[in-house]
Design a binder for these strands. Structure first.
Lengths: 185, 185
DNA sequence: TCTCCATGGTTAGCTGCCTAACTATCAGCC
DNA sequence: GGCTGATAGTTAGGCAGCTAACCATGGAGA
């Protein structure tokens, strides 16, 4: 997520300086905030690097994961509609069309008309798609573990607790947009 | 950052279940990781909502902030080259061209040839751009404060400390891409 | 049965990100 | 001065996100 923030976090002294001009700026809050976004960004990149080596983006990867999760929980090779995929992925149906387009083009998913509702398509994982996931996931999870094992178990618990608090507050400031997204497009 | 993760975080039991199929998956690490990305996403959205009301994206906002920071530290209405902007913002020069295009179109920045190096343009903030920032920033910082004041000061310190650890690890897994970015494009 | 509204998937256009390529300019070396 | 390599900004094309609009289908109510 480039541009999420500037490359270098402002030094605390700069924040202090800026708070003279902008009284609403709380240096401590600003610092923590930027660190949170920065850390998220760095973690995102660490994971993305692995995906990029397999020529797949986070978005497409997410679609494949949705489809695979669906299979596993049912033990059946179930399929999902683009709308359902969009809902789970938190993007619009329009966006999902594009994602499924390229996934289908690459032979990772198939798309077929739904038998019961003529408005709908259904998307399912191909063997190739499943295979790709099995290639990707070991290192994907390893990287995740490497990153988070920087912290001890108690530290991770603390982190999750603090993050949970922030998320709750964020949900008040910005009601989940995902609820309307899959309807959009 | 849509698609960063699926809309709903998997329950811990699901992670446990998945770890049977994927031995590299550490449920605790995975949980903390996803929480971090989710929290970042939510905070991003909370801030973005305010920006959106002023018809400006995070990216364009960042450019304006770069230019304003440059002014303030010098006390002079200095300008930056697109390459310098790209470097600070962590995007490619190609991307910066587009951002500056729309900012210029909206009268928020001006672009002029550099006097000393005919290859270069210089970009500066207009009064309109500065004005927009002064309209945006109060609530921008308020939102930031609201979010981070969910935590006490000690909790924020803890959070920053933990995040710093993770970022260091991430830097090892994914060396800063920004170093090459501004050269790209 | 007909009408209206909701739903689904896609398209078009825009923005923002990337890479690769291009032209113009600059700097250093011979 | 000429040549070479580096640098700057832009363009083209692709991907991913959005909104709005569109057409087809489905469901509910009269």
């Amino acid at each position: 997520m480039p541009m999420l923030m500037l490359k270098n976090l402002p030094r605390y002294e700069c924040l202090l300086e800026a708070s003279k001009e902008f009284p609403d700026l709380d240096p401590s809050a600003c610092e923590a905030f930027l660190h949170l976004l920065h850390a998220g960004d760095e973690c995102f990149r660490a994971i993305e690097l692995n995906l990029g080596r397999h020529n797949i983006s986070q978005g497409r990867f997410g679609v494949l994961m949705c489809l695979m999760s669906q299979c596993r929980s049912d033990g059946v090779d179930a399929a999902l509609s683009p709308a359902e995929l969009a809902d789970r992925a938190g993007v619009t149906r329009a966006t999902m069309t594009g994602l499924v387009d390229t996934l289908e083009r690459d032979g990772l998913v198939t798309r077929a008309p739904d038998q019961e509702d003529r408005r709908m398509m259904v998307v399912s994982l191909t063997a190739k798609g499943r295979q790709l996931l099995h290639e990707i996931l070991p290192e994907h999870f390893q990287r995740m573990a490497i990153l988070m094992h920087t912290l001890s178990e108690p530290e991770r618990k603390t982190l999750v607790r603090l993050l949970h608090k922030i998320k709750e507050q964020a949900a008040k400031l910005a009601p989940p947009a995902a609820a309307h997204l899959a309807s959009t497009g």
